[in-house]
Design a protein around this nucleic acid. Structure first.
Length: 306
DNA sequence: CCGCGTCAAGTTCAT
DNA sequence: ATGAACTTGACGCGG
């Protein structure tokens, strides 16, 4: 019996007090940084509780949890000041069997030719890893990362990624997984680098639709290829699923998940074990909707299946 | 209180 | 060469 689990990223709609706060460089005083941090950690607790109450087993923690968490602009030893809060949060996460992840964004570019950019990328990955470690999660709590820029020569830029990989700590390396993007690096590129480094690959369905490899291949094929990169200590294979916003530019996420398109996709993966991260503007609402649709689907009579 | 310009960060593409 | 988009909402100022 295989299972598909669903989760959502960073924010939930309709959970009062769970909104994250932030501040700007100008207002980043010690007091303000402490206030925002305390608020955001409390918000994370509310999100953890919400997920437990709604049987959601997968959640991406926002990179904005700690204001300027990887920048000298945050000069506080927040990991010490809030270590007890993190530990308590970690217990709630463990008790509710929630799998958390984080996803450094477009500004984290490990393969940049610019030494300062690489240095900041290493620091940013350290920040994200520190959060997951403070929460006492194991190494199945992943850091999802893109390969970065192409700089007009993908093979050279992939080589530089692998070279800079050596600068990461073991604890970061044990958590990083590579995702295909919608511009430069398609899933075949990602699998090649993931293979070189011996780390897992995350298949993003919408990015793949926009930026497929020349060699073709169905999503099901590539999900199968990615499955081979996940080892027992990495936890369940993860993929990303989102739909195109009809009124938006290519790659823009839809307001909500359309079940019309979701159900055939679900049918195509339901014979696998997968954790599916939904990227959609209505966040938790679509997660709940997809879970309901999937469970309804699986209990429908299926005479065509033996 | 509301509205709107602005916000740490990197790369790519358009003007 | 300069600037907007990406993803995204929240901040923070001015009125």
């Amino acid at each position: 019996m295989t299972t598909i689990r669903f989760g959502y990223a960073c924010l939930a709609l309709g959970v009062p007090g769970s909104e994250l706060r932030s501040c700007t460089a100008r207002t980043a005083t010690a007091q303000r940084l402490r206030e925002v941090t305390a608020h955001n950690l409390n918000a994370l607790g509310l999100l953890v509780d919400y997920n437990a109450e709604n049987s959601i087993r997968l959640f991406r923690i926002s990179s904005n949890l700690i204001p300027f968490g990887s920048s000298p602009l945050n000069f506080l030893p927040w990991w010490e000041e809030f270590s007890d809060v993190f530990a308590a949060l970690g217990e709630r996460i463990a008790r509710t069997s929630l799998r958390v992840s984080m996803h450094p964004g477009q500004y984290t570019v490990l393969n940049s030719p610019d030494e300062e950019v690489v240095r900041r990328a290493v620091a940013d990955l350290d920040y994200h890893e520190r959060v997951l470690r403070l929460l006492n999660t194991d190494e199945s709590s992943k850091l999802i990362l893109h390969l970065g820029g192409a700089y007009g020569d993908k093979p050279v830029s992939c080589d530089r990624f692998c070279r800079n990989w050596e600068r990461l700590s073991d604890s970061v390396r044990h958590r990083v997984v590579l995702e295909n993007d919608d511009r430069s690096y398609h899933i075949a590129d990602v699998l090649r680098v993931a293979g070189r480094l011996g780390i897992p690959a995350v298949f993003d369905c919408l990015h793949h639709a926009i930026n497929p490899p020349e060699v073709g291949g169905t999503p099901g094929f590539w999900i199968g290829e990615c499955a081979k990169t996940w080892h027992p200590w990495d936890g369940r294979q993860k993929i990303h699923y989102s739909q195109q916003n009809p009124g938006g530019k290519p790659g823009a996420h839809s307001q909500t998940i359309s079940l019309e398109d979701f159900l055939p996709f679900y049918e195509s993966i339901r014979n696998r074990d997968l954790d599916v991260m939904l990227e959609v503007k209505d966040k938790n609402l679509s997660a709940v909707k997809c879970m309901a649709a999937a469970s309804g689907f699986s209990t429908l009579p299926s005479p065509e299946l033996e």
